[in-house]
Every structure is written in C-alpha cells, then in structure tokens.
Write a protein that binds this DNA or RNA. Structure first.
Length: 491
RNA sequence: CGGGGCGUAGCGUAGCCCGGUUAUCGCGCCUGCUUUGGGAGCAGGAGGUCGCAAGUUCGAAUCUUGCCGCCCCGACCA
C-alpha cells in the first residue's frame, strides 16, 4: 500500500480518536486494548440498548443471563466454532493469589490451579446450548427466544476504540426452533430489526446481505449481515444474524419430540450487535468540529445556553427557559439547561458541538426583548431565529428534520460511493483512490476471494439480499460469474 | 511479531543533535476582581520519580546499553 494511503489512514485514525475523546464518549484505559466508556458515551449506549431491547421484546424475545466463564471442554464441542475463536481467548487457570514468599507482592498460588480451565466468553453459544439441552424436550418448549446483554472478551492483536476493543458490550440472541424454515425466518427477522434500527435510529443506511463462506461466523450455516459505509470509504460490519442449522444442537445433543413423537435436533439462530455501533455512529456522521449525533439517540437532544449580565437578566431568562424546558420534557425531549456560570457561552457552544448535541438554543436579554431565541443545528451549523411562542413545537419538528437530514446525507454519500468495476485495474483504482463499495463479478470460490484479499486488501462484504443475477466474468480470474458481489476495504 | 513515531505537571508541549545555574511554554487547577452573543482578561498561587534501570562523567532530561509502556501502519480480526 502506498505511503499516501497509509498517511491518509493515519489522519483518519487521529480524527476518529479525537472525536471520541474530545466528544467525551470514552478514554483509553490502564488495560491494554480496553477502554473506559464515560458517562456521556454510556448514556448513548443506553439509548441504543433500550431501543433495541424494545424491538426484541416486541417480537417475543425475553432477556436472560448466562455465566461469563465457559468450561474449556464446552468450547471444543463444535469444531468450526473452536477453530474460529481459539486463538483469541482469555483463559482463567487459577482461583487464588498469595503473598510472594520471596517478597515482591502478590503471586498466583500454584496450588490453586483449576482442574479445568475456564474461558472468558468470546460469545456464548456453547454455554447457552449446554443449558438449552436441559430446557428443551418437546416441540411445546419451542420456539425458545432468548437474548442476553453482556460483555465478552476477544483477545485481538490490534484494537481500536469502540470498533475492536478487547472487552466489549453487546447483546446476543440465541433462539431454538422446531423447523429450519422457522429458524431461517427468525434469522431474517432479526436482520431486519438491525437494519431498521441502523436506518431509523442511527440514521445510517445499511446494506443487508449474506456472507460468503470465508466470512461466515464460526459454526454457522449462513451468516447475514448489515454493512455500513464510513466516511473514509471503508466498510463496517454493523450487525450479524446467523442461521446455525442444527450444528450446535448436534454438538450439545439438544433434541425435541415433535407432534408425531419423532426425535429431531432443534434448529438455531444467533444474532448480535455491540458497542461497535457507537464507532459506526461516530464515523458515519461526524465532521471536523466534533460528533454529530442523530436526535433519536442523542443523550442530550437540546441544550439551552443563557447569555446574561447580572442576576436581573438571568432571572428574566430563567423564567422563559423554565417554561420551555417543562414543555419540552413533557413532550419527551431530552433537554439540558446549562446555566453553569463557570463557563462562558462561547465555551459552551464549542463544547456541545464536540459532543454532537443536535440542537442548541441561545437566549439572552436581546432575544427576550424581541421575543425570540437563536436556534442552531449541529448538522448544518445553520443558525435560525425562532419566536418564543410555539418554540417547543418548532424544536421538536427541527429534531425530526435533522434526523432525516443526516440520514439523507449519509445515504447520498453511500450512493455516490458504490461503483461497478469491470476490470482488475479499475477495481484497484477505485479501492485506492475513491474507496467505498465496489460491485464486481466473482467466480464464487474461496480461493479467488482469498487471493483478492491478499492482492487488494479488499474482502467481499456481502452478497446483497435479492441480488439480481447477471452473467459476467470474475474480476480476477476471468471465469464465469452469475452475479456481482460487494467488495470493500473494511474495518 | 515486523515497520514507523513517541514517553518531560491533570492534558498538550519546548529543551536533547552540541551534557553545565532554579527544566520551557500553553491549556487546565486554586484565590481575588472585572467579565459573559463563538473556547474571557488581569493579578497572585499550587503542581515535576524528565517512563524504568544500569553505565559514562566533576556534572545527565540531554550521551551509551538494556528494559517497560503507548499511538499509528501491517500481520490478525463473526
């Protein structure tokens, strides 16, 4: 890869890290590869979590919680699964420390070695299916629709704030069904929920598709995903929904009796999204002045900044603001009145811009005299003068406008960054100079996919759902192809 | 694990090449006054194992060696 591209990547990483740190979402922690999610970042996560949780429950799912530790033997029961996760597992081998007899603090007590090592879950399929075995006997126990909100650990070589941390927060749904059809329907339903969440709440357009064998989840029959495009032209897998077939049921011997009293293995799905979504949100909308958060998820949707000289003016402003805050809160708007006198207005303006607060209202004596306020929108930096009468309604309308506007902007960006490539040179040229998704023919073999990854650093992000068939020849090998697939460089 | 960059106050940094008083500057912090429509001004003040260790030297932030840690780019990554 050229020096120019490397330096572009560096600049972009710097930009991304600054957004997160200056925006108050998270910080590096004392533990390598882990991060501290700060209150503002966690509030954002809670908003995402609450919305997703509601969507899961509306489709009949229930929450439960399974242990953090997984006996090593569980993990090895499904061959492909262990293959995929073994090299990034944190392992607990002892359960006690003691004072070093030679001085120098605490050491692991060698006598406290566990008989069987415990893996800190990288995902919970195994421990959950070990449990499902005892929960499922009859078709009457199905479908079993469980979700858990949890933390997981994957010991990746290289980490990146929110996008790939050693420990991360996520939700993982694990369902069991009587038929393949039902399980597949569940898989697609959850993919649809993720896509709806990304587009409606995160204002981030996504492409729904299916992964190729190379990119499939370890242990799945089919992996479906939503893929988003970041502003630097790289793709990001934002969520996955897996059709697991009977793989885990067979590995953990989970059978049920059907109506005819025939025994069969149950059919499974699993699906998840993580705090990576916050990284996606940051990269999808932000600009050089800081974060741009979609109103539907922003921890603070409206911030009100008073501008005053002396107590008398402050009281006049308070009077107007308190009424406005009350009205907005009643309408369910998350509003903050920042009348902290330690910081001046200009400081606050800059601060809330970095935090991505969608709407800022400034109100001073001058405004009160004219019965107006200054309303500024974060996404366009536009400033509007609005009458105090009917203000709450106008602000609510503006929040909706902003939500739509940033979605449209992101959608336009993505449309402008999906290109067709019909030759290898063109393929490389687009990846190096333009970025984005490249729609190209591929001969359908893993070998070719590997070779393309090796040569171009690009992977097949997905084969879009309802992908039109079209005859062509593979971008690399020239062999016949029946459809175009979406390639991109990815996070 | 390879390549690059870096480690000096809470944060960001100058000084290092070419060793020499009391380690520079900005932000932040504390006190006071004045301020408040785009990151305030003035005055005073607090805050330091110069990443760690050893070596060279009369003398080390600066030179040498070793180690540790961080960031970025690869490798790796549902």
């Amino acid at each position: 890869m050229s020096k120019e591209i490397t330096s572009r990547q560096q600049d972009y990483s710097q930009w991304y890290n600054d957004l997160i740190i200056k925006g108050g979402l998270a910080d590096y922690s004392a533990v390598r590869g882990c991060m501290v999610i700060k209150p503002y970042g966690f509030a954002l996560w809670e908003n995402m979590r609450d919305q997703l949780d509601k969507m899961f429950k509306d489709t009949g799912h229930q929450n439960a919680y399974f242990p953090l530790f997984i006996p090593k033997s569980f993990l090895s029961k499904e061959a492909a699964h262990i293959e995929g996760f073994a090299k990034e597992c944190a392992v607990v081998t002892h359960y006690r420390l003691k004072n070093d007899p030679n001085g120098g603090g605490l050491v692991v007590d060698p006598e406290a070695k566990l008989e069987e090592e415990l893996i800190i879950r990288p995902t919970s399929e195994t421990i959950i299916w070990n449990t499902y075995k005892t929960w499922i006997q009859s078709y009457r126990d199905l479908p079993l629709l469980i979700n858990q909100w949890a933390n997981v650990v994957r010991w990746e070589m290289r980490t990146r704030l929110f996008l790939r941390t050693t420990e991360f927060l996520w939700q993982e749904g694990h369902t069991a069904h009587a038929t393949a059809t039902e399980a597949m329907a569940e898989t697609m339903q959850m993919l649809g929920i993720y896509a709806e969440f990304a587009e409606t709440f995160m204002a981030m357009p996504v492409i729904k598709g299916v992964k190729t064998a190379n990119e499939r989840f370890a242990g799945a029959v089919d992996t479906f995903c939503i893929e988003a495009l970041m502003q630097d032209g790289k793709a990001l897998q934002a969520g996955t929904s897996h059709f697991l077939g009977q793989n885990f049921a067979k590995a953990f011997d989970v059978k049920f009796s059907d109506k005819e009293n025939k025994l069969d293995y149950v059919w499974a799905t699993s699906w998840g999204v993580s705090t990576r979504l916050i990284g996606a949100l940051v990269m999808a909308h932000s600009d050089d002045d800081g974060l741009v958060l979609p109103p539907k998820l922003a921890p603070i949707q409206v911030v009100i900044v008073p501008i005053f000289k002396g107590e008398e003016q402050k009281q006049q402003i308070d009077e107007k603001v308190i009424a406005l805050v009350k009205e907005l809160k009643q309408a369910g708007v998350k509003v903050k009145y920042d009348d902290n006198d330690n910081n001046r207005p200009g400081w606050k303006f800059a601060e809330y811009e970095m935090k991505g607060v969608p709407v800022r209202v400034a109100i001073g004596a001058r405004d009160i005299a004219n019965n107006v306020v200054e309303v500024a929108r974060r996404d366009t930096k536009e400033k509007l003068s609005m009458p105090i009468n009917g203000l709450a309604g106008n602000i609510i309308e503006l929040l909706n406008t902003i939500q739509n506007s940033i979605y449209n902007k992101a959608a336009a960006f993505r449309e402008a960054n999906i290109a067709e490539a019909n030759s290898w040179d063109q393929f490389l040229d687009i990846l190096d100079n333009k970025g984005g998704f490249v729609s190209a023919h591929w001969d359908g073999t893993s070998k070719t996919e590997d070779k393309i990854k090796d040569l171009a650093k690009a992977t097949i992000r997905c084969i879009p759902l309802n992908n039109p068939l079209s005859d062509g020849v593979c971008i690399l090998t020239g062999k016949p192809s029946i459809q175009r697939v979406l390639f991109a460089r990815a996070y």
